[in-house]
């Protein structure tokens, strides 16, 4: 190794420590035997999986986890479908109102969610959507849409115009041209947008605690904050740590398998701007 390589390796190590230590701390906490919680050690003295067993046995976590998965997946799918349509139109077609659409998306992306919580709370209460899956899916779709529209539009724009013209000349209808030529070429963009949209929905806390009241629709992050422990007198630290690790797993998997996609998706908007 050259000197430069060693220097860079040290810097890289600093970055790795920065990124992983807080996560490893939670992992360690979740594997600690409850009697050793208060030892303040970074590495567990006594290892146990009891904390994980507890959260699934007691059941206060299973249902919210299912809620989280279901709501995030459904919201992501809806956002992707709507986003693909809108992004295609924005990237490819010439129609009045296009800039309004883009402006509105940007506005929503920057919008303070808490400003929506009050009115949504009231509206959903009236419509009977409060504390339901749909009650969370709607706002999640809305806040995932700007992201998906921008990412997908930038992918669509990179597909050469002439391919679509060629498809038309080859006898394809506009819809056939879209389905057979554009969609396959935009697939990487769709995957990217879907991952980022999912992460965003998975991450939400404010809507989840404001628009739910029981386990019927409460998602995992919100449920964690209501953990009381297996019994009234038990400290919930272990359960919280274990649950926190569980809901981090999908994120770690996405990051490991789709690193390039996520980076390109996050940076595409900034460069094109």
């Amino acid at each position: 190794m050259t000197g430069a390589q060693i220097r860079w390796s040290i810097l890289n190590l600093v970055v790795v420590v920065y990124a992983l230590v807080p996560v490893l701390w939670l992992l360690s906490l979740s594997l600690k035997d409850p009697s050793t919680f208060t030892d303040g050690k970074f590495i567990p003295r006594e290892w146990t999986f009891d904390n994980y067993k507890n959260i699934f046995d007691v059941g206060e976590f299973t249902r919210p986890l299912i809620n989280s998965i279901g709501i995030a997946i459904i919201a992501t799918l809806i956002a992707i479908v709507l986003g693909v349509f809108a992004a295609y139109a924005i990237a490819r077609l010439d129609f009045p109102g296009k800039n309004v659409m883009l402006g509105a998306s940007l506005l929503i992306a920057m919008f303070p969610q808490v400003s929506l919580v009050t009115p949504l709370f009231e509206i959903e209460r009236r419509l009977g959507l409060f504390n339901t899956w749909a009650g969370l899916i709607f706002p999640y779709v809305t806040f995932a849409l700007p992201l998906t529209i921008y990412i997908l539009a930038s992918f669509f724009k990179e597909i050469p115009w002439e391919l679509e013209k060629a498809a038309k000349m080859d006898g394809a209808s506009p819809f056939q041209a879209f389905r057979k030529v554009i969609v396959p070429l935009a697939a990487p963009g769709v995957v990217t947008a879907a991952i980022l949209a999912f992460i965003q929905c998975w991450n939400d806390f404010l809507f989840a605690i404001s628009l739910t009241s029981t386990d019927r629709a409460r998602t995992a992050p919100a449920a964690i904050s209501f953990f009381t422990g297996a019994s009234q007198f038990e400290d919930p630290t272990g359960s919280i740590a274990a649950a926190a690790v569980v809901i981090t797993i999908p994120i770690v998997l996405f990051v490991l398998f789709f690193q390039r996609r996520i980076v390109s998706g996050l940076t595409s908007g900034a460069v094109k701007g």
């Binding site: 050469p160 002439e162 391919l163 013209k165 060629a166 498809a167 030529v181 396959p184 070429l185």
Partner: peptide, 9 residues
């Protein structure tokens, strides 16, 4: 077409 517009996939 000038660019040939072959479908890359």
């Amino acid at each position: 077409f000038q660019s040939y517009a072959l479908y890359p996939h």
